[in-house]
Design a protein around this nucleic acid. Structure first.
Lengths: 219, 219
DNA sequence: CTCTTTTTTTAGACTTGTCTAAAAATATAT
DNA sequence: ATATATTTTTAGACAAGTCTAAAAAAAGAG
């Protein structure tokens, strides 16, 4: 059995390793877990002894198959719980992350799979992030953001790349939730902000900072 | 914030204090948590400093109002999660305890109350134990067991006093689940075992050990 | 009431995960 | 290439919760 702490390290390493081709650096892990590099080194040694990561001093780490399986199953838990909280318990999409951080560590294959069935096998969580299936397969969205769209192009909001409460709230004030239709009406050269038509109704303005974190499927 | 460990101590003290008029003894807590008396003493000092228990050396402990509120809210969580697991995720009543032991520590008033609403404010958990309401009120069953019934008396199964898997399984093989109607047909003097008619159909035999842990409402 | 047994507490040690400060290795710049 | 800056690791310390062994207090027996 692994502690919550170990599981959080594995999850962090998993997420960081999708962003870098090479080993994940000690500092990157420390930053993502709000801890110190020295603590990370200690934990990596432990995970390495448990054969959950491959590690050579000064070379960064990568998950082993075993480590990866654990990380993916925790992410699966996390995202299923988020769906549960939003769909069944009426939470808002900006309220569920912290609770899911706790719930994800409840370790029971049966619980996870029954929850999955109860929720009718959702493919995406409330932020559009894909939910790994029972076998651990993850179907990622293509990585097109609103900022990639050209004038007059249309799309549907399918996810976010930034999960902060403030960003999610900002989107909600613009009515930009999952499933929203968007058409780009204007791109301001100066600051790359955009005017977009939302659901064929209102026109809203969104900053570049906002548009580049909004994942879109072109239509 | 309190650690899982602290919460488990509070829960244990709460449960033990319903059984004894005086302070709860160090040894009793140690036994219930499968730990050593010396560890209990240490923890009690800590809880005492946090004003969650009243403690004088060698005199046992009692919960303060604050400690009791926490204990009750954890029990509320535990029992609501058990209902969820059985009603929504198709778990059996003998499978839910350990999972609920983990889930009960997820600390969110909103989560608890929304779950309660989602489950339509259940009054009892799958073992017939009463679920404390939002304000912490607990409506206990009267403490009549099958063993208290006389010949030809009738009752309905409303709970169990023993929660082990083996006992719950034993009951299930006898078709003695919550809501079952019972009529006492024979009481054997020698070993106090009983023959009872279940749901006006089959007659089954139950040992004294079995009958004294089955909580009944007379009809 | 005194002796014995049981319960509880203390003292000191160990584990897990953390930290700071300093040393070692690697990367960068000129 | 050599000096400088950055990253990573080591060494040693600390807090939480646990344990064993021994001491202190309370309870029970004759």
């Amino acid at each position: 059995m692994n502690s919550f702490t170990e599981e959080n390290y594995l999850k962090s390493i998993f997420k960081l390793s999708t962003k870098t081709a090479h080993g994940v650096s000690t500092n990157a892990i420390a930053e993502s877990l709000a801890t110190k590099a020295s603590s990370v080194t200690d934990m990596i040694k432990k995970l390495s002894e448990k054969k959950l990561v491959n590690y050579k001093k000064y070379q960064g780490v990568n998950l082993t198959k075993k480590g990866q399986d654990i990380a993916v199953s925790i992410i699966r838990n996390h995202r299923l719980w988020e769906v549960f909280l939003v769909e069944k318990l009426d939470f808002k999409w900006d309220e569920v992350h912290d609770l899911a951080e706790d719930l994800e560590h409840i370790n029971s294959k049966k619980l996870t799979d029954q929850l999955d069935a109860f929720l009718e096998y959702p493919k995406y969580d409330p932020h559009g992030d894909p939910i790994p299936d029972k076998e651990g397969n993850i179907h990622r969205h293509q990585d097109i953001t609103l900022a990639d769209l050209k004038l007059d192009e249309q799309g549907i909001v399918v996810g976010v790349k930034e999960h902060s409460k403030s960003y999610l709230n900002y989107l909600e004030t613009l009515n930009l939730v999952l499933g929203t239709e968007i058409e780009v009406k204007e791109i301001v050269d100066f600051d790359r902000s955009m005017s977009v038509v939302v659901n064929k109704k209102e026109t809203v303005n969104i900053s570049h900072q906002g548009s580049k974190n909004l994942i879109i499927k072109k239509i």
